[in-house]
């Protein structure tokens, strides 16, 4: 009974998606395995590292701390949906590229979605606010310096 799969309807990156999952399946695993969206990464499964960050109804959320069944009817955005439909990079993606905001790239989708969520809600977020928000996620390669630089540059570009 409990391992029974149940239907869940989501809107992922603008597309309606219907999956059949066990109640215990996390949203992160559902996105990766049932939606084929492996850009959302799992780094800790305890809600600390933030590699699994996605936007749910516009808010950055840890997808390892939520079950897919709980997301029924939600609008979900993942890294795969950040670029434009024609493949143009989002200013945050372009800025991470330009400013060396990534090294191994494992944490990068989480940081991009976190920053995208924050800047969409608060386009005028100042450096302190952005630093504080970016402290939500862990990166082991960059020392964060170029992540901050990338986000600040993208914020400026998004405002202009």
């Amino acid at each position: 009974m409990s391992s029974q799969e149940r239907p869940v309807t989501l809107e992922v990156n603008g597309d309606p998606v219907r999956v059949f999952v066990e109640a215990r399946k996390t949203l992160a695993d559902t996105l990766r395995e049932d939606c084929g969206l492996t850009g959302t990464h799992l780094g800790c499964e305890q809600g600390v590292c933030g590699a699994c960050t996605v936007l749910i109804d516009g808010d950055p959320v840890r997808s390892c701390l939520m079950f897919a069944v709980q997301a029924e009817g939600s609008e979900i955005r993942t890294i795969e949906g950040l670029e434009s439909a024609d493949g143009t990079l989002h200013p945050l993606q372009q800025s991470f590229w330009d400013h060396h905001g990534l090294q191994c790239g494992f944490c990068t989708p989480g940081f991009l979605m976190l920053a995208a969520g924050v800047l969409e809600k608060d386009p005028n977020a100042d450096e302190e606010t952005l630093r504080e928000a970016l402290s939500s996620n862990l990166c082991r390669c960059t020392g964060y310096q170029n992540i901050l630089k990338s986000v600040l540059a993208a914020a400026e570009k998004l405002r202009s």
Binding site: S2, E45, G47, F67
Partner: peptide, 26 residues
């Protein structure tokens, strides 16, 4: 009961919490 689940789900992922039924009040 699960609401935000930000502690509970982490504990469930560690299998330190293993409720037979989760009652979602969201």
């Amino acid at each position: 009961v699960i609401a935000g689940g930000q502690s509970l789900v982490a504990m469930m992922n560690f299998r330190l919490a293993r409720p037979a039924t989760l009652v979602d009040i969201n």
